[in-house]
Amino acid sequence: MDENKTLVKVRDLKFARGGRMIFDGVDLDIQRGKITVIMGPSGTGKTTLLRLIGRQLKPLEGSIIVDGEEVTTLGHRQLYELRKRMGMLFQNGALLTDLSVFENVAYPIREHTNLSDELIRTLVLMKLQAVGLRGARDLMPAELSGGMARRVALARAIALDPMMIMYDEPFTGQDPISMGVLVRLIRNLNDALGLTSVVVSHDIEEASSIADYIYLLSGGKVVAHGTTEDLANSDSEWAQQFMNGKPDGPVPFHYQAPPYAADLKID
């Protein structure tokens, strides 16, 4: 694999939370200019993975290299410089509740540039237009639905035109129309601006429609990876179960627990 084409390179990643290993040796490559989808059952640590890449969490072991820089050992200043080139869409939007929609999108621009108000207005309206919420610019976050909030957060994440955007479940809570718009938006941003996208999703249909590459996580490991066709045609049990949404298979539906009968005190 060409080193230059890999934007994020994760090697032997180990991470534990509350004494439980969340990741136990994960290797991952995210290609520049491509859309990489990360899938996995709820609670496997997809959100955690994104946070590790953004260095909001520090791994126990292993290395994470983003754009040639080892984030696990990065100093405060360099880390913040790197983050300026990353956008992240949080699972619940995470809008700043004391600012209006407009100001939320303007926030990173105001913080990091000295552009005139005029220019900021133009930029913000462009981003809001892209997510279809230009008319909602004066609303406060509390007045938005969950799906709208996530779209505003998306507009905010792309406000600074970063080199990479991490989307944490962008499709949940969207109606079919805005879902279609979002899928196209992510695709367009990626192709037009040459962005790199990392999309965490449960939604197999939507995800596979935009994915250039898919990683399947389960039990703290990468259990399968490949292009959509690779996975669909793979005879890996993991891939089969996940791609077809079967309840039975190697991916457990239940969070790890003692046997059911023992828990209910049935002999």
Binding site: F90, N92, L96, R156
Partner: peptide, 17 residues
């Protein structure tokens, strides 16, 4: 509450300390 609603995390990811 800003922490609980991930607003602080969001700021960090926007490179705002």
């Amino acid at each position: 509450l800003m922490k609980a609603t991930e607003q602080l995390s969001a700021m960090e990811m926007m490179a705002v300390d």
